[in-house]
């Protein structure tokens, strides 16, 4: 088997006393699409941020994160692009979107300012922002939530990264816009041969979009494997409970919704 793109061994992260991640090991193949699922506080975002090199300073970590496919330690923006949940939080409100994207292009691709601005328009076109050249001088607040997330995606891709990390990229959006954004993610990941890691609490979304699913529960990676296997034959009680909470549109309505009973899980 060829070298994986990403290899994590015995990763442990704690934020001063409380362990956020315990002994996590996993591998991700080049071009693979990994979904990390789990509830709030499960450690899924911590794992994603540890890979991005974006842990807060107070975090202490042990174990190793390696990128065997890269010739050097990855640099954020150039090798790894990150897309966050809240696009308003990742875009600078007082800088035009053209400048924000061009800045990344100039820094990581070494282009002149004018070429970088043209490249920014090209990137905006790739995320389907209409009339991109005329929008370069617009500010983030002039766009809807879904458009802002597309612009943030253009900025994340501006350094031409080989890994895209998306941390709950659609949790703040409605289901219709969510569908557009994940379709776009799919398209860009395939067209550019990117490796994708995305964090979600929605197991159905993970099942549609990932070839590998990792389930985090209380800081531990309790299950990780091919999507069909994790869904078809879940091993861990939490994974089973998560699958049971899924509401399908064609299931008859029940009196109550399935809950996850924390006492029944270890």
């Amino acid at each position: 088997m060829s070298e994986p793109y990403l290899r994590i061994r015995n990763l442990t992260v704690d934020y001063g006393g409380t362990a956020a991640l315990q002994d996590v090991s996993l591998q991700l193949a080049k071009g693979g699409r990994l979904a990390l699922i789990g509830e709030s506080g499960s450690g899924k975002s911590t794992l994603a941020m540890a890979i991005a090199g974006l842990l807060p300073r107070r975090a202490r970590s042990g174990g190793t994160i390696e990128f065997p496919a890269l010739p050097r330690q990855p640099s954020l923006g150039k090798d790894i692009g990150v897309l966050f949940q809240d696009p308003s939080g990742s875009l600078d409100p007082v800088m035009t979107i053209g400048d924000q994207i061009a800045e990344v292009v100039m820094t990581h691709r070494g282009l002149s300012w004018i070429s970088a601005r043209l490249m920014a328009a090209e990137l905006l076109d790739r995320v389907h922002i209409p009339k991109p050249l005329s929008r370069l001088n617009s500010y983030p607040h002039e766009f809807s939530g879904g458009q802002k997330q597309r612009i943030a995606l253009a900025a994340a891709l501006a350094g031409n990264p080989s890994l895209l990390i998306a941390d709950e990229p659609t949790s703040a959006l409605d289901t219709v816009v969510q569908r557009h954004i994940v379709n776009l993610l799919d398209e860009l990941v395939r067209d550019n041969g990117l490796t994708l890691l995305f964090v979600t609490h929605d197991i159905a979304l993970a099942s549609e979009r990932a070839d590998t699913i990792g389930v985090l529960y209380k800081g531990k990676l309790v299950e990780c494997g091919p999507t069909a296997g994790v869904l078809g034959e879940p091993e861990h009680a939490y994974t089973k409970a998560l699958i049971a909470t899924h509401i399908s549109l064609d299931m008859p309505r029940r009196k109550r919704l399935a809950e996850i009973n924390a006492d029944g899980l270890q």
């Binding site: 509830e39 709030s40 609490h201 197991i203 409970a241 998560l242 909470t245 009196k255 919704l257 996850i260």
Partner: peptide, 13 residues
């Protein structure tokens, strides 16, 4: 998130 969502909806029901 999903688990809390079900608890809140059940409370409302």
């Amino acid at each position: 998130d999903v688990s809390v969502r079900a608890q809140i909806l059940n409370l409302l029901l």
